[in-house]
Amino acid sequence: MVAFKRPDGRKITDLRPMTAKVGVVPNADGSALFAFGDTIAIAAVYGPRLLHPQHMQDPKQAVLRVNYDLLSFSVYERKKPGPSRRSQEISKMTEYALSPVLDLKEFPNTVIDVQIYILQADAGTRTAGINAASMALAHAGLPMKDLVCSVAIGKQDTTVVVDLTKEEEDFHEGEGATDFPLAKIANSDQFTLVQLDGNISTDLIPAAIQLANDACAEIYEVQKKALKEGALQ
């Protein structure tokens, strides 16, 4: 392969330096911070708690309710506070990404609220948010089958790379940039988030998924380590 230079000198398989910490919101039942380089997400879990209004309750299982948003000053052009169609979509996708690992049937008529906010955005915010939320759910002591790990695979022209920055997302040469955020159940082949924007040949999709598998294995170790450290405090 031709030597491919990334702006920050990373190899194509390198994630940005990760930071992970639990217990960042003492009021919450569980909370966590997760960062990929300059992208920082915090997540707080409240619940399971009784869901109001009552007609929204599900007598068979808990409702997982995710709210993802960017803080207004997390991006250069100030983001108007409040939900947008983008944030509503990402919230929904995050619910789908996380719910397969939870035992929702254990808590009928309740809601598990997951609040995710992005403090600083440098691409990959939904994946950082999912990693933080997955840790926050574990930190809350909820019964879970496994952790969920998430990473955005990207493509610059025809090279598939791991964990794009904003600068890399704005790449316009050749085939341009592709953003392919994925989440998976850690010790499995089950993908719980699959989104894509850009321009990628179907031939490259298996390779991109393989990169995600390797990156998620690294993320999993970081999440686990932070959870263990949190438990000792």
Binding site: S99, I185, L196, D197, T202, I209
Partner: peptide, 17 residues
């Protein structure tokens, strides 16, 4: 070549690799 421009999985069940 078939070029994919957008993808979105909707629903709580996973897709396997």
């Amino acid at each position: 070549k078939y070029m994919v421009h957008s993808t979105q999985k909707t629903g709580a069940k996973p897709f396997t690799q």
